[in-house]
């Protein structure tokens, strides 16, 4: 399954990619116009690496992330996640594939307002066959520095604290792959920086593969690879070029 040589892409490692996109395209119909957001996009992500996808706003970064995570279906192209072709799976199959193996961090945190911090972290655990869920959730909240805020509702937490809950939630199931969509987008610079530190620390400790979408250059530069989304395709950039 290994595609060691690719056209646009990026990495030439010899390992089996955890995520492999070939000729990915996404068109949407808006009114009477057909809008092409992605076209002929290729990507390989290998276990353990961290990949940043950057680009101007509106260029389709979030759409790409949705496709890569199997939340949405491409118009054309093929996508393999954990060696499984997503196109061959229905919505439920894709959901099962994600269960326990994929973590998410969102720009708007996506914490459920009626659940406490602890309950929010418990949510993905409750779908997995793991035991000791409450202890696990408590441990992770402690790791992100929220040991004292377990029973607080999201509205009682600051933005940074909410995103820390979201980080704990993303890592609690021990995922192989974490997707992050503008994880600092709703935070001030200082808080954002602390969240980035935490994100990379957790990622390193857990040995997780990380795919993040951002326009935050500081964040992008800390990743192993940077890809710029331009005119529907990914272009490899050196980390130094990101800010340019």
């Amino acid at each position: 399954m290994s595609h060691s040589s690719t056209r646009d892409a990026v990495s030439t490692r010899d390992a089996v990619p955890i995520l492999h996109a070939t000729g990915l395209a996404k068109q949407v119909v808006s009114g009477e116009r057909r809008l092409t957001i992605l076209s002929g996009l290729d990507l390989q992500v290998f276990p353990g690496e961290s990949v940043a996808i950057v680009g101007q706003s509106g260029v389709g970064k979030s759409t790409l992330l949705g496709l890569l995570a199997g939340l949405d279906q491409p118009t054309h192209g093929e996508l393999e996640l954990f060696g499984q072709a997503l196109g061959a799976l229905d919505e439920d199959g894709r959901a099962r594939l994600r269960a326990g193996r994929v973590g998410f961090v969102f720009q708007n945190f996506q914490l459920l307002p009626t659940l406490t911090a602890l309950e929010n972290v418990l949510l993905p655990l409750e779908l997995s066959p793991l035991s000791d869920t409450a202890t696990r959730a408590r441990d992770w909240l402690t790791r992100v520095g929220l040991a004292e805020r377990l029973e607080h509702l999201p509205k009682q937490l600051s933005g940074g604290e909410q995103q820390r809950v979201a980080l704990a939630r993303a890592f609690v199931t021990g995922p192989e792959l974490v997707f992050a969509d503008e994880p600092t987008g709703n935070l001030d610079q200082a808080t954002g920086a602390r969240i980035i530190d935490l994100l990379f620390q957790l990622n390193r400790e857990a040995g997780t593969t990380l795919v993040l979408v951002t326009h935050d250059h500081a964040l992008a530069r800390r990743c192993d690879r940077c890809l710029r989304l331009e005119e529907g395709r990914l272009v490899e950039t050196s980390r130094d070029e990101v800010g340019a």
């Binding site: 439920d92 594939l97 193996r101 949510l123 993905p124 779908l127 997995s128």
Partner: peptide, 11 residues
């Protein structure tokens, strides 16, 4: 979110 975390429609 549950879909995201891997819950099926049936579940």
């Amino acid at each position: 979110l549950l879909r995201c975390f891997g819950a099926t429609q049936r579940e």
